[in-house]
Write a protein that binds this DNA or RNA. Structure first.
Lengths: 206, 206
DNA sequence: GTCTATATACAGATAGAC
DNA sequence: GTCTATCTGTATATAGAC
């Protein structure tokens, strides 16, 4: 790689890193291109040498996150059969990995969320994102269905609900104005999604 | 009331109605003040005679919705004791009313959601909105806790999760690119929140 | 490739006639 | 109170020198 390309790659990396920092502070929608370039110590014009728009930069960050996510889930279940989401340990492990990925990519995750919401309800972007991101849940639920297990509802809908609540909490829950630990959130969501409000006892005493 | 005040009230109502229409089409963040005035058949300048900003108009719409919501819930349980959310019928009724209010105020509900998200993660607005809107769930859960019922987690967190999933779905789920009926959604969420993925049977066979 | 300087575009808000 | 016309601020994107 020539020295020129190295410099370019450096700048691109600097812009991405700066974007992550400033997205975390002000949020995606509230940051201007110039906020990113300033935080990266570059000139405004340099931005467009690497990205056509803020949206395109976000897609690059999304690709990075996807890569990290698939690695994290590959570590969890290396090529094995689908998880049984009604097994407490497996459900918890799954939620814990998903939560860890979302939290370590807080800024990117939040930016994608903001972008999808800003597109408006009629665009369907948020629903599309929800369905895409929960494809793994959906598959596991469909597997359960094949095993004659009765599901609470359509696998697509249930999967979207599960993923939706996780990403909603990951976005809304910030240190400072609420003090739930990661473990507390994971435990609570595991219990809620596994046995619901009724608890592990099944049907309540009449 | 003088004729002048009548005209003013008419214009204000026209602006609110127009805002609801255009929010539903383009979303809150994507609509300009001029979109609203145009849809209402008024001049741009007239807007500021009634609202200082788009945000203030939204607060007015929120007040209208709150009023409607409290009526709906009052009809459901007129002055009675707190609901038992582990009772299938009561949980379903509760979710059904919440869903009906959100759907019949789709545009306002969506606009509030967009506004809270656009404020950025660091603002805490989305969390605040979530906690405020789920105060009723929280109280019911705390009541269950007092009855020695074991909850999946902190009432504030569980309530936020319940409300979060409902408003997320209400925003993301639109006719056209997904075809779940209201009943299907309510049934699925009732089942999920009541008994989780494991189902009403309680602990699964080993 | 990176920089400075500038052009373009548009939403928000106001001024003043009616 | 409502209108038309306009001003202001600001974010995006480009042009051209280095």
């Amino acid at each position: 790689m020539g020295v020129r390309k190295v410099k370019a790659a450096e700048t691109e990396a600097a812009l991405k890193a700066a974007a992550i920092r400033v997205f975390a502070e002000r949020g995606y929608l509230n940051t201007k291109i110039t906020d990113i370039t300033a935080a990266a110590g570059r000139a405004t014009g340099s931005f467009y040498q690497h990205f056509a728009s803020k949206e395109e930069l976000l897609q690059a960050l999304r690709a990075d996150m996807r890569e990290q996510a698939s690695e994290a889930f590959a570590d969890e279940a290396p090529g094995g059969p689908p998880h049984d989401l009604t097994d407490p340990g497996q459900l918890r492990a799954h939620l814990a990995v998903a939560w860890a990925v979302m939290r370590s990519n807080r800024a990117t995750q939040g930016a994608l969320f903001e972008s999808a919401v800003a597109a408006g309800p009629a665009s369907g972007e948020l629903w599309e994102q929800l369905v895409t991101d929960t494809a793994m849940y959906r598959e596991h639920l469909e597997y359960l269905g094949e095993q004659q297990h009765t599901l609470p509802g359509d696998p697509v809908l249930i999967a979207a609900a599960m993923g939706g609540i996780m990403s909603m909490l990951a976005y809304a829950l910030r240190p400072g104005y609420s003090d739930f630990s990661d473990d507390e959130v994971i435990d609570a969501m595991t219990a809620l999604l596994l046995h619901g409000l009724a608890g592990p006892g099944g049907v309540l005493p009449g």
